[in-house]
């Protein structure tokens, strides 16, 4: 059988919120390592990849590798039934037709049990090649969310330009142009609230704000976000989640005419 008990159940709610608007259905792959998911949005423009390591659960039991084919909207609805301080357990058999979510209140006075039908999802797995990035930008996740929100008022896409002076986000539309420049706060300092840039080569790429805004749904999961950019390659947007794993998003650049 498979059983994974997450004491900080709110994390599962937050992971769900971070993917449900992007991905319609996906396989949650459960192995001894943990729970992972990789899925593209329906237009194949962006990809989400997440890992919840087994040591983040207490206990974690996976007798046989299984894939739980899940409709995200249905799971998100069930996750909304869990309170923020609930302990969440995910449970299924070795050849499952259903998955069970159990929500326990902290004092165990209330136990909710939701069983959900699984789907047979034929998903293709993509291998993500190791990339030498031109620039790796770390910044407060809330700052990146704010930038995406503000520039969405100006245009549909954002140009990210990174050089020795810092990083600039700019958008243009019918009403005009918006530019937001961030300087490094300190050299190689990745403390919360800091902007840090590892620069190999100056780089400038344009991305759809619609998708970056979807990615910022992961903001409640982490204090820091890392943007890894490289000329003519997809950007990797990573939120590392303390003690359990990560969620990463990839988005292909817009092709300059």
């Amino acid at each position: 059988m498979f059983e994974a008990r997450l004491v900080q159940g709110s994390l599962m709610k937050k992971f769900m919120e971070a993917i449900k608007d992007l991905v319609k259905e996906a396989n949650w792959d459960c192995t001894g390592t943990g729970i992972s998911l990789q899925a593209m949005d329906t237009s194949h423009v962006s990809l989400v990849s997440l890992l919840l390591r087994s040591d983040g659960f207490d206990p974690y039991r996976c007798d046989r590798n299984i894939s739980l084919g899940i409709n995200m909207e249905s799971m998100a609805k069930i996750m909304k039934c869990a309170s923020n301080d609930d302990v969440i357990t995910i449970r299924s058999e070795d050849h499952p037709d259903n998955v069970t979510f159990v929500f326990e209140s902290p004092n165990q006075e209330k136990v909710c049990d939701y069983e959900m039908k699984l789907m047979d999802i034929d998903s293709e797995h993509l291998g993500i090649p190791d990339t030498e990035y031109d620039a790796i930008i770390s910044m407060p996740a809330s700052e990146f969310q704010r930038i995406c929100r503000d520039l969405s008022n100006i245009g549909d896409s954002v140009k990210i330009t990174c050089n020795k002076d810092g990083v600039q986000f700019s958008a243009q539309g019918d009403t005009g142009i918006g530019k937001i420049a961030l300087k490094q706060n300190a050299v190689i300092d990745k403390e919360d609230g800091q902007v840090s840039i590892e620069l190999n080569d100056p780089v400038s790429l344009t991305f759809a704000l619609r998708y970056l805004t979807f990615f910022t749904k992961a903001t409640p999961l982490a204090s820091t976000v890392t943007l890894s950019v490289s000329a003519k390659n997809p950007v990797a947007v990573e939120y590392r989640v303390d003690d359990i794993g990560y969620i990463r998003y990839y988005l292909a650049p817009k092709i300059e005419e």
């Binding site: 291998g127 090649p129 549909d156 390659n233 997809p234 817009k254």
Partner: peptide, 14 residues
């Protein structure tokens, strides 16, 4: 506006 590229061509199908 520039065209949006699909991801498939960057990543390898396993």
């Amino acid at each position: 506006l520039p065209e949006q590229d699909r991801l498939d061509q960057y990543f390898i199908k396993c």
